[in-house]
C-alpha cells in the first residue's frame, strides 16, 4: 500500500500513470455528458413555474459545485505539498487554479443569464452569485500571487499558504453573504428553489455533475503532466524518455 503511494508520488510514475488514466476519465465523461444533456433538455418535463428556463440548472449547478470542489481540492493539495514537501501535490494545486476559475466564471455567467428571465435583470445581489463572485476573486488572487514569483518552488509554497488561508475563509464568506442577504427582502423567485423538483428532473443533474467531475479529472491529468515536466526539466529520467519518444 505505502509502496504504491510512494511510487505514485514519484514524478516519472505519476507522469506515466496520469497518461494511462486520462482516456478512462475523458470518454466516460463525454458519454455521460451526452446522456445528461439529452435527459435535461428532452426528457425532463418543464418546470411548472419557470417553464423551460429551469433547464439552465443542468449546466449552472454542476459548474457552481465544481468551482467550490476544485478550490477545496486545490487547498488540500497545497497543504499536502507544503507539509510533506511533495512536488506532485504542488503540481496538482497549480493545475487546479485556472480550471476552477473557469468553472466559477461559467457559474457566474449562466447564473446571470438565468437571472434575466427570472428576475428581469442580468445581475441581482443574490447570495449564491455574490459568493461565486468572491470565490472568483480568491482564484484570481491565487493565480496573481503564483505568477508574481519567478522561482517555481517559492511560487508553489507561497501560493499554498494563500490557498489554505482562503479555504478557511470560504465558509465564513458563504455564511456572511447569506446573513447579509437575509437582512433584505430578496427577490421572491429563487433560481435554486429545490421545492418542486421531480425525480425525472434530478437524475440528469446528477449525471451531469458526475460528467463534469470526470471531465475535470481528465483535463487535470494533462495539466498535471505539463506541470511535472516544468518542475522536472533538469532530471535524467525526463531527458531519457524525451529522447526515446
Amino acid at each position: 500500500m505505502w509502496l504504491w503511494f510512494y511510487q505514485l508520488a514519484s514524478p516519472p510514475h505519476a507522469y506515466r500513470l496520469l497518461g494511462l488514466w486520462r482516456p478512462w476519465l475523458l470518454w466516460p465523461a463525454i458519454a455521460l455528458m451526452v446522456i445528461g444533456v439529452y435527459g435535461g433538455l428532452v426528457m425532463a418535463p418543464a418546470d411548472y413555474q419557470q417553464k423551460d428556463a429551469f433547464r439552465i440548472i443542468y449546466v449552472h449547478v454542476p459548474s457552481a459545485s465544481l468551482s467550490l470542489m476544485v478550490y477545496v481540492m486545490m487547498a488540500v493539495a497545497a497543504a499536502i505539498g507544503l507539509i510533506w514537501r511533495m512536488k506532485l501535490a504542488h503540481a496538482v494545486a497549480a493545475s487546479c487554479a485556472p480550471l476552477g476559475a473557469w468553472f466559477t466564471v461559467l457559474a457566474l455567467v449562466t447564473g446571470s443569464i438565468w437571472g434575466k428571465p427570472m428576475w428581469g435583470t442580468w445581475w441581482e445581489w443574490d447570495p449564491r452569485l455574490t459568493s461565486e463572485l468572491i470565490l472568483l476573486f480568491l482564484y484570481l488572487g491565487y493565480m496573481a500571487l503564483r505568477a508574481s514569483f519567478d522561482d517555481i518552488q517559492r511560487a508553489d509554497r507561497a501560493s499554498a499558504i494563500l490557498a489554505i488561508v482562503g479555504v478557511v475563509n470560504v465558509p465564513i464568506v458563504k455564511y456572511s453573504v447569506e446573513w447579509w442577504n437575509s437582512l433584505h427582502q430578496g427577490p421572491s423567485i429563487s433560481v435554486t428553489s429545490k421545492s418542486a423538483i421531480a425525480g425525472s428532473m434530478v437524475w440528469p443533474l446528477l449525471v451531469l455533475l458526475l460528467a463534469f467531475v470526470l471531465y475535470f479529472g481528465a483535463i487535470l491529468c494533462n495539466r498535471v503532466r505539463g506541470e511535472i515536466l516544468l518542475r522536472e526539466r533538469n532530471t535524467a529520467w525526463l531527458a531519457e524518455s524525451s529522447l526515446k519518444s
Binding site: 468572491i134 480568491l138 484570481l140 488572487g141 508574481s148 464568506v173 455564511y175 447579509w180
Partner: peptide, 15 residues
C-alpha cells in the same frame, strides 16, 4: 497584488 489578495479575504469582515 497585496490588495488583490487581501480584499476578497476581508469581505466578510466588511459585511
Amino acid at each position: 497584488l497585496l490588495a488583490l489578495l487581501v480584499l476578497p479575504l476581508e469581505m466578510p469582515i466588511l459585511i
